[in-house]
Structures are given as structure tokens and as C-alpha cells.
Design a protein around this nucleic acid. Sequence first.
DNA 1: CCGTAATATGTCGTATGACGACATATGGCG
DNA 2: CGCCATATGTCGTCATACGACATATTACGG
Lengths: 116, 116
Amino acid sequence: MTTIQTQDELPLTESTFFILLSLAGGPRHGYAILKDVQTLSDGRVNLSTGTLYGALSRLLEQGWIARLDSSPAPEEARPRKEYILSDLGRRILNAETARLSSLAERARLRLAGGEA
Amino acid sequence: MTTIQTQDELPLTESTFFILLSLAGGPRHGYAILKDVQTLSDGRVNLSTGTLYGALSRLLEQGWIARLDSSPAPEEARPRKEYILSDLGRRILNAETARLSSLAERARLRLAGGEA
DNA sequence: CCGTAATATGTCGTATGACGACATATGGCG
DNA sequence: CGCCATATGTCGTCATACGACATATTACGG
């Protein structure tokens, strides 16, 4: 069985992680992700638009996110592209979260205990 | 006061993180770090020598690690360079561990709760 | 009504760093 | 004697983050 090996895609970069995490909260368009990531990271992470739109097109290609064809209310003249997290994306985000936890735990042990 | 802003150095790459974490367990030479990182990561992370030695020289420049002048037992013809974690390096590793923890926690909340 | 800021999307050049491939040498074991 | 593990190192390439720049629309204050 050719189960997709989510493990092989890790680690995510911090930018990618936060973008996926933002979308885990619901569909959003680019600029909204930008703002959400600032909030999620307590202002620590400020994606440049270069990073954001580059990452979004990459994530689309990889199928980790998808375009949301929210029948764009015609009165919406304003350009807006909404994205949602795909199942694959969610699985990867879960795997990354697990990796993060185990990493932190592993580090805490060695830093606290001090033993080799 | 020019306190070093450890925050500004984060996030670390996974390679850097594991190299520092390995040295947190005591002084080691390059190849030993390579093996230690494999163990620490349950075989998931296999640094190439390109990554390792590149990272080590960078870490030296930054003062996060230092050469250990362990009066090399003269009978040691074998080339071996030992490294230790500096105070700065240890502070950064601590900061990164904290970042990792809060990231995992933040993600767990959003993924579990599902709320926006 | 005009200017400015926030919203919104995008491109481009540069720098960093991971990685695989390659190179080199010694020590130990069969 | 040959091979594998140990041990250190360089080089070219690729992925990606980032800042700078570009462009449009909407909202608000003066």
C-alpha cells in the first residue's frame, strides 16, 4: 500500500507550519492568513508577502491546501482567493505537531537531567 | 545593556537544533555528533557531512559552540576535533526548546478544539 | 474631494542552509 | 590484504525565507 508517508515531509519550515495552522482554523484568504499568523505567534512571525504567496502556490501544487471555490459573491469586486486545508495537509500538520512535541520533550530531558 | 536577544536567532533549523542538543550532553567531536543525532532522533535525522561540518564552522563563528582544547593525548594520531556548547549556545537551545513547546501547545489547541 | 492607510495579491533578487556526491586518511578486523 | 567504520572536509545544487518593489481597491478623515 502506497500510504503517503507524511513523516518524509517533515520538518516543516516555521512559515509553512503557521500557514497550515492558520488554515486549520477555517478557510482564509492570503492576507487574512498573514494577520492570523501574527496573532498565533504573538507577533513573533511576520510573513513577508513573498514568503506567503510563494508558500501558498507551493502548498497548492503539493495538494496540502486547496482553493475554495466559494461562489464569489458577485458584488465582491475585490480580488480574494480563499484557501482550505486538505486532508493531506491536516495529516501533515498533525505529524508535525507530534514531531514538535517529541522534540521539545527530548530536549527538556537532556537539558534538565544534564546526563549525556 | 546589550543583552543578547536569543529570541532573534530562532527558529533553529532541525540540524542545528540536534547538533546543539547533542553537545548539551557533553563534549563531542563531529562524527560522534553525527551518531548521537541519529540516536536522539530515533534514526529520523541523518546529517550529511556537508551539513554537519558546515554547521559546525558556522556555530563556531557565531560563538554558540567552542573548540575543546582537550590536551590531545599525543598518542592520538587520529584527527579529532572536540566541541562544547557555549553559554550562549545553551541559552539559545533553551529558548528554542521553549519555542517548540509553545508551538506544539498552540497547535494542539487549534487542532483539537477545531475552533477558529 | 483628496490623500493616506489598510486591505489584498503578486514578482524578483539575494542569502542561507540542507543535502548528496566526492575526496582523503587512519584504525581494526577477518 | 582488503574492507568497513571512523573521521574530517569541499563543492555544486536546490529549496525556501525575506525584503523590496509593484499594483489595485476600499475606507476614513480632513
